[in-house]
């Protein structure tokens, strides 16, 4: 069987969803026979290739870099899965939205300074005024809520997609978890 091109992306999240993915443990070996990981924080590849079959995205869209990345990925992947609450709902990163970006940056870098507080701006992506879930910005094909989604549900989703079926994760996970 031909291996599919598989990618994972890490936007504004805690990497917990990637950890949960790795928690499928020995099943990773089976999976390795079916997928070719072409891009991921877990592999050493700096650019997202074209013609990817399946991409799991962890994290919300928080910066201009996130936005650019997810838009470009959307054009290069057949299926896009929002993995975990940050990607699906905005989750914890979105908690800054109700205060406004500037107030949050000031609180973090100026008001609570110990010495010479300054909002960092060199060589860093610019934050968007509001953090948004992935599907508000690009089309998403499947949603897997959970913080993080349980390993077995991630495994279930990938298995279903590999088998060409439409996964039905609704009863297996939920927001928060």
């Amino acid at each position: 069987m031909k291996k599919i091109k598989f990618a994972t992306v890490w936007l504004d999240g805690c990497s917990g969803c990637h950890m949960s993915f790795l928690d499928i443990d020995e099943k990773l070996l089976d999976l390795a026979g079916k997928i070719d990981v072409v891009y991921s924080p877990l592999v050493d590849n700096k650019t997202f290739p074209g013609d990817v079959d399946l991409t799991l995205v962890e994290g919300a869209v928080s910066s201009d870099e996130d936005l650019e990345k997810i838009r470009s990925i959307r054009t290069r992947t057949k299926l896009l899965v929002a993995l975990g609450d940050c990607a699906v709902t905005g989750n914890i990163p979105s908690m800054r939205n109700q205060f406004g970006m500037n107030a949050v940056l000031r609180r973090a870098y100026v008001e609570n300074k110990t010495i010479g507080g300054k909002i960092p701006n060199v060589n860093l992506p610019t934050l968007l005024p509001e953090v948004r879930p992935v599907h508000e910005l690009v089309r998403v094909d499947h949603f897997l809520p959970g913080c993080p989604p349980p390993a077995e549900v991630i495994e279930y989703l990938i298995d279903e997609l590999l088998a060409g079926r439409t996964p039905d994760p609704e009863r297996r996970t939920r927001f928060g978890l």
Binding site: V88, T89, S94, E136, P169, R171
Partner: peptide, 14 residues
């Protein structure tokens, strides 16, 4: 979970 809401299609109002 019971009614199968896996994501919210309306913009969050925050």
């Amino acid at each position: 979970r019971l009614l199968g809401v896996t994501h919210v299609r309306y913009p969050y109002r925050y």
